[in-house]
């Protein structure tokens, strides 16, 4: 198994601007996180808002540089502040954002959304761009008739499919999914999760799946990392983390997740009647 993504001691600080009366400060968003993901596997990153999981996503997708630490993609060290970000590298890593309503340009037709990455990469003639976009539309469960439509004509689940299609246009090896299903309804969520699983099998994709929903993580992840205030407090295989959570925060998280099985409902009703 080859390791697609490896992070060693990633740190990201944000400088707060000082004003006339206030001194600037430093926010430590990510405080030394290390992990590695093998090809074709899914790493889930769990944590509440403000724990640094989206900051980490931006670093992994080469949007923001890390303050310190080393990032390896397919075994090659990458530092975007030193101009390592080539078009070839950009092709390797793609991202799907949380809100499918915000991540698509309302004035851009779906066809243009999907072909834009190919235009930027160059070397692909127009008819081939169109053909590849049509193929990708079918892959994600949409049709050729959607090519000339605008984003507002689609539902949330369909838009998320478009966002996934756009991310896959360049055949990346690593896909960072930043809360891809948390804005979707339960039944649509199931469809999108199925789609992601199918695509992973077909293209042998590696996923970094960011979520705060433990039931989704349990379903899709091979490995789980729990973040809390910028630190990775728990990191292990799915079985290990779910069977035997070590850190107090992970335990709190598990305890807070609503349980929808009849046994826990019965227990709750019994408690209520006793009170």
């Amino acid at each position: 198994m080859s390791v697609v993504l490896e992070a060693k001691n990633i740190v990201r600080d944000y400088q707060l601007p000082g004003g006339l009366f206030s001194k600037g400060g430093v926010v430590h968003a990510v405080k030394g996180v290390s992990f590695s993901v093998e090809k074709g596997k899914t790493l889930a990153i769990v944590g509440e808002s403000g724990c640094g999981k989206s900051t980490l996503a931006r670093i992994l997708t080469l949007i923001d540089p890390a303050t310190s630490g080393d990032l390896f993609i397919k075994g090659k060290k990458v530092d975007i502040t030193k101009g390592d970000l080539t078009k070839d590298l950009r092709r390797e890593v793609q991202i799907v954002f949380q809100n499918p309503y915000g991540s698509l340009n309302p004035r851009q037709k779906i066809g243009d959304v999907l072909t834009a990455p190919l235009v930027i990469q160059g070397n692909v003639p127009a008819d081939e761009r169109r053909e590849r976009a049509m193929m990708m539309l079918k892959k994600v469960g949409l049709g050729e008739e959607h090519y000339n439509r605008y984003p507002h004509m689609f539902s949330g689940g369909q838009r998320q499919r478009i966002a996934i299609a756009r991310a896959l246009m360049l055949n990346p090896s690593l896909l960072v999914l930043d809360e891809p299903v948390s804005a979707l309804d339960l039944s649509v969520q199931a469809q999108v999760l199925n789609l992601l699983a199918d695509l992973q099998d077909e293209f042998n994709l590696t996923y970094v799946f960011i979520s705060h929903d433990l039931s989704v993580v349990r379903y899709i992840a091979d490995e789980v990392m729990v973040m809390y205030f910028g630190e990775a407090v728990e990191y292990g295989t799915r079985e290990a983390v779910f069977a035997d959570p070590k850190h107090d925060y992970t335990k709190t998280l598990f305890a807070a997740t609503p349980k929808a099985d009849p046994a826990s409902i019965r227990a709750r009703l019994a408690r209520k009647n006793a009170a």
């Binding site: 339960l186 929808a260 826990s264 709750r268």
Partner: peptide, 9 residues
């Protein structure tokens, strides 16, 4: 709600 867990709780 749309969350079955919230219903159960």
């Amino acid at each position: 709600t749309h969350n079955m867990g919230v219903v159960a709780e």
